[in-house]
């Protein structure tokens, strides 16, 4: 039975959107907290300078300003990702740069992966690989594989993601780790989104690699 984008959106969309929204808001709050403490620190220095009748220490001020600027840049990057993510449901079908989608999926869920203590290396293809479909569902598909793949990995593990073409010239996104990290179960939620992309998930015998293959 073929499912429509709308049916899949209704079923899985809110959960993924909510999960990403929560982690992004947490990241933005952290940026705000750092900016808040640094502006507070400037205020403290101004008050102390006023109280002691001496000019404020310009060098210290400059350091604080740099820290605030860094957080503004960080928050801007987070909000840009959020904006792209929010617009990912605008078109039910579009041409998507696969590596750009992986970068966005990783940026959105960076904190969740970092909290598991897992390092993710993403190596983009030399050329561009495009797939057609809904960006939102490609992101949710990549994320569901990442969540399943990192579920059993111990802290300190390294997960390598790379895009390539397989022996049948099909576009493929590969997730690999030195230690076994995947099981045969747990991929059901990806099923409907896989249909949308005419894709399949291929596990290797050692359970150290899972491939998302487009154009089955």
């Amino acid at each position: 039975m073929k499912h429509t984008v709308q049916e899949i959106t209704d079923q899985y969309g809110p959960a993924y959107f909510g999960r990403m929204g929560a982690t992004i808001s947490h990241d933005i709050k952290n940026c705000l907290a750092i900016m808040n403490e640094n502006t507070g620190l400037m205020s403290d220095h101004l008050m102390m300078a006023q109280k002691n009748g001496v000019p404020p220490d310009i060098e210290r001020f400059s350091g604080i300003v740099q820290r605030i600027e860094k957080q503004i840049g960080r928050a801007d990057g987070i909000v840009k990702s959020l904006s792209t993510f929010s617009h990912s449901m605008d078109k039910p079908e579009q041409q998507i740069d696969l590596d750009e989608a992986v970068t966005l999926a990783l940026a959105l869920g960076a904190r969740i992966i970092a909290n598991k203590g897992i390092k993710v290396n993403h190596t983009g293809a030399a050329g561009k690989f495009y797939v057609n479909g809904s960006l939102f569902f490609l992101l949710s598909l990549i994320w569901s594989i990442l969540e399943n793949a990192t579920e059993t990995l111990a802290s300190g593990a390294v997960l390598n993601i790379s895009s390539m073409k397989d022996e049948k010239s099909r576009i493929c996104l590969s997730f690999q780790c030195e230690q076994p990290f995947v099981s045969d179960s747990g991929w059901q939620t990806s099923g409907l989104a896989l249909d949308l992309f005419q894709a399949e998930i291929v596990l290797d015998d050692q359970h150290t690699r899972v491939d998302l293959v487009f154009g089955k």
Binding site: N30, A33, I34, E37, N38, G40, L41, D44, M48, I64, R67, K70, Q71
Partner: peptide, 16 residues
């Protein structure tokens, strides 16, 4: 784990 947060907060608390 946000070291820039802990540094600034620590300095402000020390000032107090």
């Amino acid at each position: 784990d946000e070291q820039e947060f802990t540094q600034a907060l620590a300095e402000r608390m020390t000032n107090r």
